[in-house]
Design a protein around this nucleic acid. Sequence first.
RNA 1: GCACCCGUAGUUCAGAGGAUAGAACACAGCGUUGCGGACGCUGAAGUCGGGGGUUCGAGUCCCUCCGGGUGCACCA
Length: 586
Amino acid sequence: MENALLILRENIRESIKNIYNLDFEEISIERPENEKYGDLATNVAFLLAKKLFKSPGEIAMDLAHELKSYNISFECDPSNYPVFSDIEAVSTGFINFRFSDYFLKNQLSEVLKKGDSYGSGKSGEGKVIIVEYSAPNPNKPLHIGHSRNNFLGSSISEVLSFSGYNVVRMNYMNDWGTHICKSMLMYKKYGNGQNPDKKPDHFVGDFYRMYEIEHEKNPEELDKELAQMFKDMENGKKEIIDLWKKITGWAYEGWEETYENENVFFDVCEYQSNYTKAGKDIIDFAIKKGIAERDSTGAVIARLGKYGLPDKVLLRSDGTPIYITQDIQLAKDNFEKYNFEKRIYVVDKRQSDYFKQLFKLFELLGFKWSDRLYHLAYGWVSLPEGAMSSRAGTVVNADDVFKKILELEKGEMKNSLKEVSDPDGTGKKIALSAYRYGMLKIDPKQDIVFDINSVTKFEGNTGPYLMYTYARAMSIIEKAGIGVSSLESNIELFENIEMREEEISLLRFMCTFSRTVSLSADTMSPHLIANFLYDFGQRFNSFYGEVPVLNAEESVKFFRLVLVYCSAQVIKNGLKLLGIDVVEKM
RNA sequence: GCACCCGUAGUUCAGAGGAUAGAACACAGCGUUGCGGACGCUGAAGUCGGGGGUUCGAGUCCCUCCGGGUGCACCA
């Protein structure tokens, strides 16, 4: 596909040169909105119309005529089959191109050759990208909003890695501050030193919630105690530090299972507590540069009004660093260590202003890499019942959601095949496909109304639908009794096979997979892959419903088996990029 | 008040400045002595929040108004 684009662009350039004696560089090639027009299209005729004082339709006709005479084929291919079967000018001004059957069939060799790496790219080779995601507070369990963050971060990492980047998946634990002391304080007062009698992060979370309830009753008193505890912690008082280690340790221990269920992992964990003394040098530098100033209370403030941003406190009046101080230091350290091409912060959109301030500060400080920072701002997750509120106690924790999904999937799987060897493992994978796909199919910018009942369905645009489609495809391969290794594809074998409409449609769509992946990497939008997969899955199921495979005549049967296998491979690769592992049977 | 995000079918969502705005769910029908009917096919359903503008061409870009959400100094 990528090759076809390059060749086409070159040929269009040449045709313009030949006909109009014009060097024209802005040649854009797009995918027609309606596929009946073709596989590729160009709008150069519109752009040339003004320069040439001719109508777009006329120019399109001339160019199409010229292009047809070129018999475009791949240079490296000795067989000289044409890439396009049809080049057509439309009176409005478009020139449409349709892939030849040869090109489409040839795609199958690509898939077989590349296998699990089909669709991957090399645009990121030799470059490091840091993706920071999850970043929870170790004082309570992860909630459904964290899940979206985890899915986005891990999926984007997967996609970037598939594009050749060296990806560093980073978790940055917000493990220092008064928010941690909330759980600690309640445990100290009411915990009686006992060990968790449930999943440890939930155990810790109970004390966090207890604080919020107690705080309603007696705010002044509790605020004071909390401040005192944090002060002791800052001063390194042993008893408090031990308590801090205990509480955060339980949170981490509990999360392990959550992360594992969600198929989320990290390469590096950074801890805010390692940065409590951080950033002082940079702050001094900022003051010297006139970016920030110390006010009468001793706090350091960056004046950002002239950049259309709110002012930002960089250092408390007591001289201790706050979140942004540590964030500045972390990014600087990261750059020195990794020399990153990009650093992506996966954080919900409420923090947009914060990141604008942060990035502006880096720019003002003169760090040349300030434009390599990117805030992936994603929207809220709510349930059909309404928004979550920790005050109202309607926060939905991730473990409960996963458990509920697992339960629903087991109900859906009532028709499952008997010979499933590991029903529990399969159930978990199906459940995760529902959970991850349900979130990832939505544009990150959009808020999500997460309806557990609809994402777990086996019908519609869901993960399980695609899992089922894959399993059905692989079931054909199994029934054929043919080893996967003996599947092969070359043009001599398939030259005389006449394809049916459903097969052509499937192949034409398959060709766009790698483009979808690279677009998804460029825009950090996994939902493009999800929507590709659904569209592709529907085409496969149309094919499945209309075109017999195992009962077909021998040579046709072999072609269709290859097509089925390659389709399954594409679904598998796409789902993998969403962090979903396929199952052969379900 | 200022700033940012969102507004597309009854509902949940896709639409990479291009051609007649697409799916799914729900709704009304249909289909296998064929490979997993957990599927497929057909139908009905839209003033793309309103109004201006830029462009050969706007759901998409700009302005403005309306509606919803979020953020605005020593929390993270």
